[in-house]
Design a protein around this nucleic acid. Structure first.
Lengths: 341, 341
DNA sequence: GGGACAAATGAAAGCGCTGTCAATCGACAT
DNA sequence: ATGTCGATTGACAGCGCTTTCATTTGTCCC
């Protein structure tokens, strides 16, 4: 490449990385050669020599559900224009895969890491801390972040969902949960805590599955609840897929939503507004978390080490009340039509 | 690291890459030091020196929809155990982003590339070809693959959906399509071709939007069709999200599915079986395409260059007939109940 | 016992690039 | 004319690892 343009390798490097340092004539000659030869600098060599990899590692627990889509998009939208490449590894909700992924990523010497959740294994935390690079934990909040932390209180969100339903008059409130990742477990704990605080029993009202959640599972879990506690009047699901499945199960059985059973999901994915009735859901600030994480990293990388004033941010959540929940009408409760199954 | 274990750097390298070449004693000492120091080899240096990066680049047009999930999962399941790291770049259905992504990935010197679709720009194709590494194009099929190709005929799939509905007695068959990526366009073309072949007009029966599809859009597009052609009796959508949105729109208006309107989606995502009624959909072999692509690459990398006998594979598709479609009953057609909107 | 050989380790070189510093050149001021 | 300065360019070294080849040591055999 350098030979083809009749200049030294250093000049090629400069023409590409710092064009203003090279005379117009040479820059032109080099640009031509680049195009002609389809030259693409070897990122490995460049990173090795400069000790700047322009890589940020991101670990997500899943790609299946729409949740991590906005989040990843937001991260890319901030980092890519800054010339930073995002390496995404999907660890499928597995702690051991996460450890491996962190090790792998560290081998690429990223300039920062963004991980989902705050429940890394001890070894994972150690690797992250030892790396000396900025680490952002997202999606959840903790008292003892590795470094930076933005998220929301899932326990509180679970409790809030229960309070929301309780305020509408519901007492038999079920909870459906699948593949209990730590955040879903916290939402479950919040549900349980609030039910306890209200003096309400949850016996037979919790449906859980170890399998990854999907829409069909929502129906299955709700069917189990119905078998145990036919009087169930509201369902809080740990995500929107299960909520949709529950809605379908109700349709299948001729159970009216929200008159007979109220449904509230979690995440507020796009299909919530489109459903019939539209699904009430606990909405989370996924884009904001991604954006904040990426921006903080950019500041740290550029600013050279001064931490933002606030290492932990609670973005909160909000309940989007829609047609799948409504204040209970006591009279209509008795004569609920129950289809055969 | 080498110093800490009291050996030379070469020996450390060997203890990690080719443990059998190092005596048990030294191996032990090095392993200890690795653990103690949390040593992780610098992948950049390793790749640069060995000219083996153990990277395979994968380009996907989207992560939003569930489609690329199984596909990516399948690729990882084959490649990761073989010690190969998969770098995934999401190009959001943009040709220019795809070009950039290919350039970026080439800078990492992957040992192979897997790209979705067969419609790369000329520059993209050139980059891929010049790279000299195996390239697999997936999801679609072409007469002139860059290298290897596995996919299905989308034009044929679109036509098959129309034939399926036609055989059930439908004549006014609508098509909904969003963000027309090349494959969706081919499905649309197949729809049009088959409608023409049947001598059926598609006037007012095609709903298209340039925005990325989501469930809500399915409802909106279908509403437009209804306004134009109230007699529409069946809808073929370019993906399952739009199908679900159409189903919801029908529910909202009191239109019975499949009695008044039949719906057939595309991809056969998991929620199709859970919906009420379950959605008929054209099912595609996403896992198989990923697996085949990954396996072929593994053979080429290991086997050292001999191409598999068959460079192009058509995995076909199949129509999963479910409750959202049914043979038309002519008598019920007339008195369809039409809600206000 | 000496030579042939295998096993284990290290020394040297280099992967393709970039940071640093030195060299060159013309412009400009004195 | 001489020295000074800024703008360009190149030489050199080295990033952390691996490949290749040489060296050392121990083993075996006639």
């Amino acid at each position: 490449m350098a030979r083809h343009a009749g200049v030294s390798p250093v000049t090629v490097s400069r023409a590409i990385r710092h064009p203003e340092m090279v005379s117009e004539e040479l820059r032109k000659r080099i640009d031509d050669a680049v195009l002609k030869l389809n030259y693409i600098p070897n990122h490995l060599a460049s990173a090795l020599a400069s000790t700047r990899t322009h890589i940020v590692g991101v670990i997500v627990p899943s790609l299946t559900n729409g949740v991590f889509d906005d989040y990843l998009g937001a991260i890319q939208d901030v980092l890519n224009p800054a010339g930073i490449q995002v390496l995404v590894l999907n660890v499928r909700y597995s702690e051991s895969e996460e450890e491996k992924a962190i090790e792998t990523l560290m081998g690429y010497h990223p300039e920062a890491m963004i991980v989902a959740g705050v429940d890394q294994t001890e070894r994972s935390r150690q690797l992250l801390r030892n790396s000396g690079i900025p680490v952002v934990q997202t999606m959840d909040i903790t008292e003892s972040p590795i470094d930076l932390n933005i998220g929301l209180n899932h326990d509180e969100a679970g409790a809030a969902a229960v309070r929301f339903l309780h305020a509408q008059g519901h007492r038999r409130i079920a909870h459906l949960t699948a593949r209990a990742d730590p955040r879903a477990r916290r939402r479950h704990a919040g549900y349980q805590r609030q039910m306890d605080a209200f003096g309400l029993s949850t016996k037979g009202l919790v449906g859980a599955s170890p399998r990854p959640s999907d829409v069909a599972m929502g129906g299955e879990l709700f069917a189990q609840i119905l078998a145990d506690v036919p009087e169930v009047s509201a369902v809080f699901t740990c995500n929107d897929d299960l909520a949709l499945g529950t809605l379908f199960e109700c349709q299948r059985r001729g159970i009216r939503v929200p008159e007979d059973v109220a449904i509230i999901g979690f995440n507020d994915l796009d299909f919530c507004t489109a459903a019939v009735p539209p699904l009430t859901s606990v909405s989370t600030e996924r884009r904001e978390m991604g954006t904040w994480a990426a921006r903080s990293i950019l500041e740290l990388i550029r600013g050279g080490g001064k931490r933002p004033r606030q290492p932990t941010v609670d973005v909160g959540f909000s309940i989007k009340a829609r047609g799948s929940t409504a204040a209970i009408e006591t009279r209509s409760r008795a004569k609920r039509p129950r289809a055969k199954a």
